[in-house]
Design a protein around this nucleic acid. Structure first.
Lengths: 101, 101
DNA sequence: AATACTAATCGTACATTTACGATAGTAAAT
DNA sequence: ATTTACTATCGTAAATGTACGATTAGTATT
């Protein structure tokens, strides 16, 4: 490829919205977030039982959601309790609201 | 890979939301949609002038947005006028609203 | 019929994503 | 100090995404 270096500069909100959207761009991650919303929190193991996916795959999806800032993990040894990151959740919500008018 | 065949079945709304989110998961496509919202409509050529991307790349992004149902193209020879697909736009808006409560 | 204009599609290269099993890490309990 | 329980990370394979230039296709206009 001859991918143009010096990547395009978009407005910060555009980049942020795209990042959130990308994180939401897989049904498993949507389902995980819905689950977190209803349960308010849960452990990795809970999800592994709910979804027919390998533990490592679930963990990978959780990592992406965490990187996007949509969830946060709290050490509850030997488990890890994942919750919605309320602050960023609100930001994402606002961005999508604004975007759709 | 040993990708598990027989893909997971999610609720229709979950799949739909993920599809929309995936289409929104790139800053260029967000920017294109914002442009369409402000102009209400535009031609492919307009976008090629606005973004420092090859014409084929823009066309590719438009195709994805069209496949996701977010935009629709109207033949206006020799150009093609793209507009937001209001019906699906409303559906997407509702899905995101519901998702974020 | 030939030309001009616009946009889609093709072919290609590299990056990223998604999935898996296997392994490593961490903290409590024995 | 070992063992146990849970989760992250590594390594890998295949699919998908993103970008480009070149080509093709479609629709007036000449």
């Amino acid at each position: 490829m001859k991918r143009s270096l010096e990547p395009i500069e978009y407005k910060e909100n555009t980049e942020a919205l795209a990042r959130f959207a990308k994180a939401l761009g897989h049904p498993t991650r949507i389902a995980i977030l819905k689950h977190l919303e209803s349960q308010s929190c849960c452990f990795t193991g809970d999800l592994v039982e709910v979804f027919p996916l390998a533990q490592s795959t679930i963990s990978q999806h959780l990592k992406e959601l965490k990187n996007a800032g949509l969830i946060q993990g709290e050490l509850k040894p030997p488990k890890i309790k994942y919750c919605i990151d309320q602050e960023n959740w609100k930001i994402a919500k606002t961005l999508f609201q604004q975007f759709f008018d």
